[in-house]
Write a protein that binds this DNA or RNA. Sequence first.
DNA 1: CATCTTTCTTGAATCAGTCAAGATCTCGCG
DNA 2: CGCGAGATCTTGACTGATTCAAGAAAGATG
Lengths: 145, 145
Amino acid sequence: MLGDMPRPDFQKQLRDVALRVTRPRLAVLEAVHAHPHADTESIIAAARALLPEVSHQAVYDSLHTLTGAGLVRSIKPAGSVARYETRTGDNHHHVVCRSCGEIADVDCAVGHVPCLTASDSHGFVIDEAEVIYWGLCPDCTSRPQ
Amino acid sequence: MLGDMPRPDFQKQLRDVALRVTRPRLAVLEAVHAHPHADTESIIAAARALLPEVSHQAVYDSLHTLTGAGLVRSIKPAGSVARYETRTGDNHHHVVCRSCGEIADVDCAVGHVPCLTASDSHGFVIDEAEVIYWGLCPDCTSRPQ
DNA sequence: CATCTTTCTTGAATCAGTCAAGATCTCGCG
DNA sequence: CGCGAGATCTTGACTGATTCAAGAAAGATG
């Protein structure tokens, strides 16, 4: 039914991390790729546009599995539900609008891993620094309330 | 009943930000101060140790109000419930253990506002940079699984 | 093609956090 | 020091995202 379609090679991505290639997972990958920073509900909707009968549970499970495998990344700004993106690997962060919740990608000013070296890490072995910038997006800036 | 006790002047803190001084708020401030990084449930328990009949709703409301006033700060690492602390004002961040969820304070290596200047903020007006370091705490490092 | 696992479907359950209405308490003023 | 207005608290029910569980279905391997 879906023999050959020239999208990003999601199948290969799955095989590369030793995950089974299933319709739900492909649909979820596709959905996340097409809607960066989308919340779970939107991803479920987008995935169903490709595969009408996916259960929400399969989407949740796929997102967890894919997140664990590093194919997608999840971000959960305070006060927001979980959101996902396929941009992984590069060290980028996010700006979140306090007013409307809009999210955008930003590369840190430093360019490289910035604050990864905390002065005193209390003995913790740090492997990732997550940065969230809070502020107002252009739209909300121009029309305050 | 509780005429004079030499604690931090929470009453003054409340008045300084034009908030009414109520028993629940004092209890919540005290609880958060005594248990940094505690989750809401712990704070409710700690507040009830001081004021047995506080409703969970009053605690939630107090936390929101105090957070809005800047007397307490809330942090919500992904996969964790909301946690609170009274350390506000200074620009410090947090390390979170991926394994046990333990949280510790850290000052950024740079010492000052570090990544506050994102290279390209997409027009967002940024007012705060929140940094969360992910890793393993000393305990979880020494005994892997 | 057959078998073994992993993954998906269905349906119910959990739990933090929120909403709403009325009672109570703080604060400012006379 | 007592009163009144308005903020704040209590009670109790509810929402909604996420998770759990058991059986059915589909992918991988030989």
